[in-house]
């Protein structure tokens, strides 16, 4: 049953990618015509954009999945725990300060920093934020809801810092960064895809080997330790993995909110038991949600585009509030 459901998910994903390829601001596109316009729109604009959306969505979703499993907290998400904000601070600082201090002092001769470095910088910020939250979590032994609250507060510090950097050094890049901060797929090309896929490949191949440890960490800490798991070691390593997944995606598409929160809950409906496949179904659904949200953002106000992060926020906030209501806080 689980396998057949997973196959359905694969089909749904393929259909959404098909839709994403066929719909867009330009409606005079045909797969079979040889004119350069169609070819360019399909292969140079829509395909890389869809692929970037899919990979980033899968990374956000698996990051949220790991966070929810490790912290045993259904309200965990890279955005809520401050990882996205940390990564954003690193990226925005590098983008603005690097532009001012590292490159050519003559503003007309500046070359932007290569895109490939952005994920590297973002993951430093993401790891820093995760380390802070992890340190507070383990030393104060917080319960699930307080952990999320601490994450929100840490995220507030990093977001304030982003705002400060932006207000002081933003200058003419203001609009560009507002769009990136909202989470955007506009103009994502093969360049962005090449900046992202090596990270996806490495991080997801690590995910192949973590199922056993993850299932042992589902036990209470004492039992997990008794069954031979070094709990603090694995918790910190898996948190770092979740941070890397989210931060590298943030570097390319911006801090898209709530994907990491919603998708693990949807995949739990499809695969209720803790199964090896659930991580991969989560990844597929995350990619699916991003592709669909991007499609909505593109099609809603043609030719204007809504950044994808706005679409996911509008979808995600009501769901988050619903989860919060359901949550029994007294425990």
């Amino acid at each position: 049953m689980l396998v057949s459901r997973s196959i359905y998910v694969v089909f749904v994903v393929l259909i959404s990618i098909w839709f994403s390829m066929n719909f867009g601001a330009s409606d005079q596109v045909s797969w079979f015509s040889q004119d350069s316009h169609s070819q360019r729109v399909l292969w140079e604009l829509r395909l890389p954009r869809t692929l970037v959306a899919f990979l980033a969505g899968a990374q956000f979703a698996v990051s949220g999945y790991l966070l929810q499993r490790i912290t045993k907290n259904p309200l965990a998400d890279p955005g809520l725990l401050g990882i996205s904000a940390g990564a954003s601070l690193a990226v925005v600082s590098l983008f603005l300060l690097g532009d001012i201090f590292l490159t050519n002092p003559d503003p007309y001769r500046r070359t932007p920093l290569p895109l490939i470095y952005l994920p590297l910088v973002a993951l430093l910020g993401g790891l820093l934020a995760t380390a802070i939250v992890w340190k507070i979590w383990t030393t104060a032994k917080l319960d699930a809801i307080r952990l999320t609250l601490v994450g929100v507060a840490v995220a507030a510090i990093f977001s304030a810092a982003v705002t400060g950097v932006l207000a002081v050094w933003g200058g003419s890049y203001g609009e560009l960064i507002v769009e990136w901060m909202a989470g955007s797929l506009y103009g994502r090309s093969w360049l962005h895809f090449h900046a992202l896929w090596p990270w996806s490949l490495v991080l997801f191949s690590i995910c192949l080997f973590i199922h056993r440890t993850l299932s042992q960490l589902q036990l209470p800490p004492e039992q997990a330790a008794a069954s031979g798991v070094d709990v603090p070691f694995w918790v910190s390593r898996l948190l770092a993995l979740a941070a890397l997944l989210a931060a590298t995606a943030v570097a390319v598409v911006g801090p898209v909110a709530f994907v990491g929160l919603i998708v693990p809950h949807i995949s739990k409906i499809l695969i209720p038991s803790f199964h090896r496949l659930s991580l991969w179904v989560t990844a597929l659904l995350g990619g699916w949600l991003m592709v669909v949200a991007d499609l909505i953002g593109r099609m809603l106000f043609v030719p204007m585009e809504m950044p994808i992060g706005i679409v996911t926020s509008i979808l995600g906030v009501p769901y988050f509030l619903y989860l919060l209501r359901k949550q029994n806080l007294s425990s």
């Binding site: 507002v178 769009e179 909202a182 909110a257 809504m306 906030v317 988050f320 509030l321 919060l324």
Partner: peptide, 22 residues
């Protein structure tokens, strides 16, 4: 609970502000 729902609503407001600006 108030802080968490407030954080979510803040996120929604900021998203709509960004949408309006864009």
């Amino acid at each position: 609970k108030l802080v968490l729902s407030g954080a979510a609503i803040n996120a929604l407001c900021l998203a709509i502000i960004a949408a309006v600006l864009i």
